[in-house]
Design a protein around this nucleic acid. Structure first.
Lengths: 202, 202
DNA sequence: TGATACTAACCGAACGTTCAGTAAGCAATA
DNA sequence: TATTGCTTACTGAACGTTCGGTTAGTATCA
């Protein structure tokens, strides 16, 4: 179920800049992200960054790709036997019941970037594609489930959007509030919905 | 089902500043929000703002309250007869099938503010409270539905978190992507879930 | 006349960006 | 094998602009 995307390659220098940007974003957030702060994290001069990128906007565009790649790596999912298991697998990837520090950090960075999509077209296009790909993956699993007779004859597109919205919303809540158990509760309820509403009654 | 919150009052001058901040945020986004830009929208000098607010942070804290008040006004919901109708009513308020310009703008501003909750504690507390109140409202409707025998005996808290996450996620997607019909699809699927999974089978 | 609600002018710091210069390394030539 | 020429990857200083914030002064009105 892997939807392939171009995958840019990075020189070591560029990768170090991306990594430094990542750390600066984590510490200060997008609104307070400056080249000085990135340079600090990088342990090189501001001008060193300009040797590799023409403008701050260029750097940010590159970083957006970097972060999106990193996100889609973690989601990339093998296909199993049971469609309902595939669905659980993909929701666990997107919204782990117990996310580790790395997953939480990546989500925090992505939420910061994504909010820029409200005013910035380049960002909005990227996140449109991300959601499009995720929805397609989920839709594919549901379609397979219906074909195989494991799922009832629901509208795959609608249910896929429902699942994606729930997963996105729970993740959003998890990174922007202190409501610790809310995301997990949403996921559990979603799982029981999938099980009882989608799975064909025996 | 109105959960009351303090409701600050604003002088006309303060309200004009809040309104100007609102417009500046809409145009430039949180990351590029400056006092000069607010003053521009206000048609007064920067120092005029400092007459009413000590620091930019003070102004932002006040604006956060202003925006949250405005949001909760639009959500405030009368209670009807049927719990399932109440649930539809509250989801329509939170995620209108055809949002008007004002609703879209307010959501855009809130998404911008909310992303700051990742790094800023004051913001995170506010959005924690918002979600807490919304979850409580939804949970209350479900509990009433179970009591009255209209709903099956589900875990009200879990289902409430599910609904809230879906609604939040769909709204988030709506304001940060170009996937025009996705939010509506999620809401329709959610409604059919509520109808068939929650409502007691006849 | 004193409080209220401002404006104009300004401050130092930080911003994104540019520039001149340079150390290290490599490839070709003498 | 030493010299020359050129590239890569930087540094540090400086540019003009904008930032959040201040200060001194002023018009309005009770």
């Amino acid at each position: 179920m892997t939807t392939d995307s171009p995958e840019t390659t990075w020189s070591t220098a560029e990768e170090e800049i991306m990594e430094a940007t990542y750390r600066a974003l984590l510490e200060h957030g997008y609104a307070d992200l400056s080249l000085s702060r990135i340079a600090n994290e990088l342990d090189k001069s501001k001008a060193a960054i300009y040797y590799h990128y023409d403008t701050k906007d260029d750097l940010l565009a590159a970083f957006l790709e970097f972060a999106v790649d990193r996100f889609e790596e973690t989601v990339d999912t093998e296909t199993g036997d049971e469609p309902s298991e595939d669905l659980e697998h993909v929701t666990e990837k997107l919204l782990p019941l117990q996310p580790d520090a790395e997953q939480r950090q990546l989500q925090a960075v992505l939420v910061g970037l994504r909010s820029q999509a409200v005013t910035n077209e380049v960002f909005r296009e990227q996140f449109t594609q991300i959601d499009e790909r995720l929805a397609a993956t989920i839709r594919g699993i549901i379609e397979r489930g219906i074909d195989e007779g494991a799922f009832r004859d629901v509208d795959p597109s609608r249910v896929a959007e429902h699942i994606l919205a729930t997963v996105n919303g729970a993740m959003y809540g998890r990174t922007t509030t202190d409501r610790k158990s809310a995301a997990a509760a949403a996921r559990v309820s979603l799982a029981s919905y999938i099980d009882s509403e989608l799975r064909r009654r025996s």
